[in-house]
Design a protein around this nucleic acid. Structure first.
Lengths: 228, 228
DNA sequence: CTGGAACCGTACCGTACGGTACACCGCAGT
DNA sequence: ACTGCGGTGTACCGTACGGTACGGTTCCAG
């Protein structure tokens, strides 16, 4: 239907001018939420005409979809060097990805886009939600999963189902933080790096091999080491 | 500003007629999302007049808030008998609450209300989000936290910070399920009871005392257990 | 210089929605 | 029977938004 950016694969790319328009549209969404994202508002903020908006993106929904694919195209992940060596390196890599994940999830545009897609989603149909799951979540899953499997290959980790292990790791890292942020809560003093390290520690205690169950053999006062 | 249901505490109660109106409004929201929740639509679906809507709830936002408090008032939790005895009982209680949590989060009205509040939330201001956090999430937190502390009193669990332990438990139970559901994904064959049992198992492996680290160190079969 | 394509700015249209006003009805209490 | 109250249904208003049309401008090709 729309002239551009219709396919779910979303490998679309846009002209610099269109990128600038999408950028200011994202800014408009971050500030003010969806109700501020009117076609006239986008045109005014981007100094372009509504007619061009409709020519480029076909539709308001097309514009929203383009914003998602554009934003995800901005954060291309590095291929994550797969040749891990030893537990410490693996843990460090996992911790880095975990901290990065937390930072991304708490970012302004990520929250705004997720709010947009979630607000749009209904019972059966979830147009933008599918896009966001494909572009936002699958990359991090593949990266983490590859790292997990490489750890299993080195006999540092022991799990049967990669996807299950990944999802548990995700739960340990993110917990209820994402939904709380989406609902408007602010994570006060929760440092992403600290939470990431704790999550990886807990994950190793759950899925590490015997001699690699984690740095802390006994659990006294582990919940959060801020007491020590 | 609104005539009713303004306080955040939200201990408001409504007349049977108003309850019926709120009920049909919830049905309208579940089916069709927020864009279907117009004042005229609610009035038509509930066979009442728009004037009554504005008299009772003052505002469209007042109606939305009333829907949240009304829905949360419907699912009053039982006080959760605190006198636990032994690991098996504690684990069973935790598993029950966990499974119930998963079922609630996946419920139609819960998803619809969360989508509504999240879609409404913006940078600073999150009116409905606060309501939802207060009414929807705090009850489950207090219940689980009480259970965790009773387990610690019986030396079945070992953790320093109750809130941290609770949040880890929450992460193990829910993982990314909630956000995925909010984004329109359907949890295909994920049985809540099974996931709850696994989560409690993992939680005991993390926070159980030495002789209570789990039902069995190797319990082959379930998705992410060690295959040996 | 001419033609055309792309684009901006603005004006315009239809509709839908939040909110209000009003006529009418049923039902107490006296 | 009269009156006030709470309610329904409908008509109405203002506005805001999605989408379209059109004139004017810039830029490039030939």
């Amino acid at each position: 239907m729309t002239s551009n950016a219709t396919s779910i694969a979303g490998n679309e790319t846009y002209s610099p001018r269109q990128n600038a328009v999408l950028e200011s549209a994202l800014g408009l969404l971050v500030e003010g939420g969806e109700r501020a994202l009117t076609t006239a508002g986008v045109a005014r903020a981007a100094n372009c005409s509504k007619e061009s908006l409709y020519k480029w993106f076909g539709d308001r929904d097309g514009l929203l979809a383009a914003m998602i694919t554009f934003q995800s195209s901005k954060v291309k992940a590095e291929p994550a060097a797969s040749g891990a060596k030893g537990r410490a390196v693996l843990a460090a890599q996992l911790t880095g990805i975990a901290a990065n994940l937390l930072k991304v999830l708490a970012g302004d545009v990520s929250l705004a886009l997720n709010r947009l897609a979630i607000g749009q989603a209904r019972r059966g149909e979830a147009d933008l939600g599918l896009l966001l799951r494909e572009h936002g979540r699958r990359p991090i899953e593949t990266r983490l999963s590859a790292l997990l499997e490489s750890g299993r290959r080195e006999r540092l980790l022991d799990f049967a189902d990669t996807r299950e292990a990944y999802r548990t790791l995700y739960g340990l890292i993110v917990r209820d933080t994402h939904v709380r942020l989406l609902l408007g809560d602010s994570l006060d003093g929760e440092a992403p790096a600290k939470r990431a390290a704790q999550a990886i520690d807990e994950f190793f205690r759950l899925f590490g091999t015997e001699e690699n169950t984690g740095p802390a053999p006994q659990r006294a006062g582990l919940g959060n080491e801020r007491t020590g």
